[in-house]
Write a protein that binds this DNA or RNA. Structure first.
Lengths: 333, 333
DNA sequence: CTGAAAGCGCTTACAG
DNA sequence: CTGAAAGCGCTTACAG
């Protein structure tokens, strides 16, 4: 920068003004820009950061990018960020509190202007560190009870589960297996339960729960087991679509026709859901809108220079009925 | 830091030594650490970066994180990075040169210690900016002719395509459709061609090419068209597995049995490939190993303080034969 | 609208 | 092994 200033015959202060687009006399701006291109000068963002106390990067935590729901979150968040001139520092938590804590330590040291945390699992234990952060933090797609100290942009998970449950109940299903991977999915399962409790009958004898790993293989294994041990089963609710992929495969391999013999309902509406055979009935969320809300909330907090309002924005889920769900066998359609 | 020093009764230089784990008399270390926890002191990484010229973050460019091949790359790269104490700055290029250029401008300003660029598409035009970067850059999964000025960790795409082609040819297929999204996939298609050229017959009249968008819908549309316009078609090669998902669905919806009536071969071996119905025959790569090699190459270059050797590491692809490929109809098995 | 100074919070030689 | 100084490359008030 000093070199540029010397070559252009001005102070580096003036160069700074030109670079950051402040008012400068047009003719000197020309001179300065000429010097910049001649010398191939690039402003040092680190130095600028130290001086301004701003890094122009926002951190994003997601459990994993292997789940299309979260990779979509990543792309949407990046879109909004780039649009505002910010960079994305990505950290995956891998359902691993230790791994998460390590990442958090890194970010906490002002390496980031704000932090968006998607998915409670693995991070919930680190909340004190988050509320103590010196920059704005917001929670995203947060299913468990959020702390009242941080803003959250999420969906009504209980209601989403209810939509899935009501759909199955209205179709006439009486015995459904729930395939879940994470304890944090309790709210959506509670919603499902609520739907089945409406007619006043007992629930436990009409639902069977299977906990499994978070991938296709997990969905497959859990569904396979349920299919073999529960003879009267007519429907399976997978706690998210990736599990549903495995559930679908399990049904196929064990010779059950979907949806004639067994209905399957997923959760998230990943891009692939509509391209399965049969296409998957699932619950969808306005991911793009959520990402936009969350990022803009954070950006506003950065601009204001203070903590974001700890508002809670809960968006509405939508049931997408496709080919994988139908009345149970023996029902007169 | 000054506060901590005052409270512990030492200089901030000593505090710095304690924080960065240098030799300090144990008793003073204790005092300093006490002061640190009392004051809740966190070192400012930006200041450290300015002083050391190091940011402890590595940039990663991928075309999109919506394709499981790349999301796996992201996770593997992050693994290695975190293991070495580095952070991940993620940028997606979205097949968009303008978007890419913008991202690159940001990173070039020393905001990053090194850069790994996965996937040529959209970045190839920015190579001059990359070779001019003031930090180490490496290319990853680079299919087009790599420039000789940058190191690359990739796979032998031509040979990978050849493996797929040889498999189909050995099964006896004579008429295959190629469903491709990107021009940069030319090498894998060339490999496929080479396999079919081995018996000396003409190629063009035995292959039909369909260019389409990069998602499931693209694979579906292209396959649907080929299926309807090419009566003698017995096999479809999808240039990557996400397209193959659409191809599979197209075959199913148009009533062709896979693999009895039509064979499908994909590329990448995404996690889901083994869970499809039928399971997808595809070409697999040692993604984890590649990520490890690439990141370590970069980290070594950072340590050495000079450009990485412009070596080219080409890993070997493997054909994974599963249920989606078989001899064409009318063949006596 | 442009010039000279101080400072962001660390680390890196350099004396004691 | 510990103390006082200079410097990383910018930006932000403050005079001219």
């Amino acid at each position: 920068m000093a070199e540029v200033a010397a070559r252009a015959g001005v102070t580096k202060q003036t160069v700074s003004n030109v670079v950051s687009g402040k008012k400068v006399r047009p003719e000197t701006a020309v001179k300065v820009n000429a010097a910049i291109t001649e010398l191939g000068y690039k402003p040092n963002l680190v130095a600028r950061s130290l001086a301004t106390g701003t890094t122009m990067t926002v951190g994003l935590f997601v459990p994993t990018v292997a789940n299309p729901f979260y990779s979509e979150v990543v792309e949407e968040v990046e879109n909004v960020l780039v649009h505002h001139g910010y960079n994305l520092l990505l950290a995956t938590t891998r359902h691993d509190p230790a791994y998460t804590a390590r990442h958090l330590e890194n970010l906490t040291a002002r390496a980031v202007d704000a932090l968006l945390v998607a998915g409670d699992d693995g991070v919930a234990q680190q909340l004190p560190m988050l509320t103590a952060a010196s920059f704005p933090v917001a929670l995203f797609a947060w299913e468990l009870d959020p702390p009242h100290t941080l803003p959250v942009v999420s969906i009504d998970y209980e209601n989403a589960g209810f939509l899935a449950g009501r759909h199955l109940r209205e179709l006439g299903h009486e015995r459904v297996a729930v395939v879940a991977d994470l304890p944090s999915h309790a709210p959506r399962v509670a919603g499902l339960r609520r739907a089945f409790a409406l007619d006043g009958l007992g629930i436990e004898d009409r639902m069977v729960f299977a906990r499994t790993s978070d991938d296709i293989a997990g969905g497959y294994a859990a569904a396979m087991a349920a299919l073999h041990t529960e003879p009267g089963l007519t429907a399976i609710f997978a706690t998210h679509d990736v599990l549903a992929l495995g559930v679908l495969e399990a049904a196929t391999r064990s010779g059950r026709r979907v949806p004639d013999e067994i209905s399957i309902v997923g959760f998230d509406d990943i891009a692939q859901a509509g391209w399965l055979e049969p296409a998957l009935t699932t619950v969808a969320f306005p991911t793009r809108e959520m990402a936009q809300q969350a990022v803009e909330l954070l950006l506003r907090a950065i601009d204001d220079g203070r903590a974001p309002t700890n508002a809670m924005s809960l968006l509405r889920p939508t049931l997408i009925v496709r080919g994988s769900s139908a009345p149970p066998p023996g029902t007169t359609a």
